[in-house]
Design a protein around this nucleic acid. Structure first.
Lengths: 337, 337
DNA sequence: ACGTTCCATTGGAACGTTCCAACCTCGTGG
DNA sequence: CCACGAGGTTGGAACGTTCCAATGGAACGT
C-alpha cells in the first residue's frame, strides 16, 4: 500500500488474504494440499489487487524460464516463417514461449543473438537455417540444449531436423529427364543452409542419368537476385540449358524474371524448378514446379526434439530426416525438340 | 567448484579473480571507476570460466528486462513480417530483445499471449494488427506501455501508428477514375485491422467523384480466398465492375485468380488494385498495382514510440499517421470503351 | 602534519519468487 | 492415554544479480 503504482507482489496478496506468502505461492501453482476456504481467499485477494506472478523471480529460483530462443536467418523467406510457426505451435502447447531473433544473415550477428539467449537463460535454442560454423555450434551445444532445423550440423552434441535434400534434388532431375531434358543447370544457394546437399544431390542424380558432362552448376544465393544473376551467367555463354533447377523458390522466381526479360518463354523454351514449395510457388501467376519440404512439420519436430532434451529424457544426439516430394505445376514441361 | 556442470556465477568469477562480487559486477557493466589491473584480472577470470551474466537475476533487481513483447496476428502475411522486421531493427539498435507471439488470429489467443508478456514483465508490448477489442486494450494499457501498429485504438492510454487508409483508398479510386473507370467495386478486409478505414475511404472518394451510386462494396477478408469469393459475388450478378479495389494484396491475388478462372483478362477487361504493396505485388508475374504502406517504417516508428514510453520521456498518448502512396504496375489500365 | 577530497573497493540488503524443514492440529490405532 | 502420521501452514534460506552506504588509502593544498 505504500506505493500505488508498483505492481503487487506475492506478499501484498498474502497480507490481504491474511496468510503466508508460501501459501499464496502454493495456490498460484494450484497445489492440492490447500484448504478450500484459504484458496478462495487467496484467489479473491489476487483478483482484487490484479496480481500477476512475476515470471522473472520464479525463473531465478526454479532455474527454468520456459522460453526457447529461436534464431532465423531470414524473416522474409516464407519457408522460415512456416518453420517458426511449427515451432511456436508445439511450444505453446507445452507451455513454452518463443523468443525470436534474426542474425541479419551474418555469422557474427547470429552468434550475438545466440549469446543474448544464453544470458537470458532460455531453456534451449533452436537455430533455423543457421549460418554459423560447426565449431561454434559445438561450443554452444555444451552450454545449452540446441536444435538445428534445416541445417545438419556435424556436431555430435546437438539434434537436427532436415529434409533429405539429396533426394529432393534427385526428384527434380528425374522429373526433368522424364520430360526429355538433358541440358540441365543448377543455380546453388551459396552458403545457405542445405545448399551443399542440394548441389551434391543434383550432381549425383545427373551422373546416375549419364548426364554428368551436360550438368552445369553456377553459384547463386537463396534470394531473387541470386536467381537473376544465375540466369545471366547461364544464358550469357556456353551451352544454354533447357531446364533450370534453382536452390529455392525465391531464386526460382528470380530465374523466371530473368528469363522473361530475355524473351524466353517458360515452360516452352525452358523449364524451371524451385525448392521449398512455399506459398509463393503455389500462386497461380507464378505456378512453379517445386520440391516440397514439410516446413511446419520441420518446426514442430525441432521443438519436440528440444522438449526431449529439456526434460532430460534423452542424452544422445538425434538427426531426423524428412522426406521431400515433388509438386508439379506449370513451370516445367517437355523439352523443346 | 562443487558442481562442474552448473553455470558459473558472479561469485565464482570474484573468487577466481580474488576480488569482491561487486567489483565483478562493475567490470561487467564496464563502469569507469575500476583500476586497469583489476579489470584485466576479472575479465581473464570470466573468460576462463566461460561466465555469462544472468539476465534473469539482473532483471529482478533492476526491474527492467530489456525485452519487448510483440504480438502479430498473422505470421504468413508478409506485411506483418516487414513490420516486425522494423520493430526488431530499432529494438536491437537500442539493446532490446523482441519476444514474438502469435495469438492464432483470435481475441482470446491474443489476450493470452499478452498475459504471458505481462507475467514475463516485458518492458512493453507492441500489438501488430491486433484483433482484441478497445476495452481490453485500455485495460492492458494501464498495466504496461502499449503500442498498436496498423490498428488505431480508441484508447487514450496507448500509442498507435497507422497508415492514412482513407487517403490510401482515395488514391486507388482517383487512379481508376483517371483511367476512365466508373463502375468500381471494393472487396473489404472483414474484421481485420484497418479494413474499416479503407471502406470509409473508398465510399468517400467515390462520392467525391460523383459515383456514389455506382460504387459496389462486398464483404471479404485479408486472404486469397477472401478475394476469390469477392469476385464470385461481384461477377455473379448485378452490374459488373470494370475495376476492383481489394483490401490487401493477398485478397487482390485472389481476385486475379478468380478473374483468370472466368476468362477475364487483366487489365484489358478489368483493372485490379491491391493494398500494402508487399513483395508479392512486385513479383513480375503478379505485377499488381497497389497502395503502398511504409511497412518497415511502421515497425520502426512503433518501437520508437515504445522507447519514449519506456524512458518515461512522454506521458500523453500519440498516434502517428504514415502517408500511403500509389505504386502503379500492370494490373491497372484504361477502362474498356 | 593534517584535514579534505576523490578514487577504488567492499559487504550487506534488496528484488519476488520457490523450496525445505519444521510446526501445528487433528484423528486414529494400540 | 499416548505415539504416530497426515494434512495444512509457516518462516527462513536460497537463486544471482544490482544498489547503496561505508571503508581505506592516496593525493592534495595549506
Amino acid at each position: 500500500m505504500t506505493d500505488t503504482t508498483r505492481k503487487p507482489t506475492i506478499n501484498d496478496v498474502a497480507e490481504r488474504a491474511g496468510v503466508s506468502k508460501s501459501l499464496v505461492s502454493l495456490v498460484m501453482r494450484n497445489a492440492k494440499s490447500v484448504s478450500d476456504h484459504r484458496r478462495a481467499a487467496v484467489l479473491a485477494a489476487a483478483e482484487e489487487l490484479g496480481y500477476r506472478p512475476n515470471a522473472i523471480a520464479r525463473s531465478l529460483v526454479s532455474q527454468k524460464t520456459h522460453v526457447v530462443g529461436v534464431t532465423v536467418s531470414d524473416f522474409r523467406n516464407p519457408f522460415f516463417t512456416d518453420v517458426v510457426e511449427g515451432i511456436a505451435t508445439v511450444a505453446k502447447a507445452n507451455g513454452y514461449q518463443t523468443l525470436i531473433n534474426t542474425g541479419d544473415r551474418t555469422p557474427h550477428g547470429e552468434t550475438e543473438a545466440i549469446d543474448t539467449f544464453i544470458q537470458l537463460r532460455t531453456d534451449g535454442i533452436i537455430l533455423v537455417g543457421t549460418v554459423v560454423d560447426d565449431e561454434t555450434i559445438d561450443r554452444i551445444g555444451t552450454v545449452s540444449p540446441l536444435v538445428s532445423a534445416s541445417y545438419a550440423s556435424g556436431s555430435l552434441k546437438i539434434d537436427s531436423v532436415v529434409t533429405d535434400d539429396v533426394k529432393g534434388a534427385r526428384l527434380a532431375v528425374e522429373h526433368l529427364v522424364g520430360l526429355g531434358h538433358r541440358d540441365i543447370a543448377h543455380i546453388t544457394g551459396g552458403k545457405g543452409a542445405g545448399a551443399n546437399r542440394r548441389v551434391r544431390g543434383f550432381r549425383a542424380a545427373m551422373k546416375a542419368e549419364g548426364l554428368s558432362e551436360r550438368a552445369r552448376v553456377v553459384e547463386g544465393e537463396f534470394t531473387e537476385s541470386g536467381g537473376i544473376s544465375g540466369v545471366a551467367e547461364l544464358f550469357g555463354s556456353g551451352t544454354k540449358p533447357t531446364a533450370v533447377f534453382a536452390a529455392n523458390d525465391q531464386a526460382a522466381i528470380g530465374v523466371l524474371r530473368g528469363l522473361t526479360a530475355r524473351g524466353i518463354v517458360v515452360p516452352n523454351d525452358v523449364s524451371v524448378i524451385g525448392y521449398d514449395d512455399t506459398n509463393l510457388a503455389a500462386f497461380e501467376h507464378i505456378n512453379l514446379t517445386s520440391v516440397h519440404q514439410q516446413r511446419v512439420l520441420m518446426g514442430m519436430t525441432a521443438m519436440e526434439l528440444m522438449l526431449e532434451r529439456v526434460a532430460g529424457s534423452r542424452q544422445s544426439a538425434r538427426c531426423v530426416t524428412l522426406e521431400p516430394r515433388l509438386t508439379v505445376r506449370g513451370s516445367s514441361g517437355r523439352a523443346p525438340s
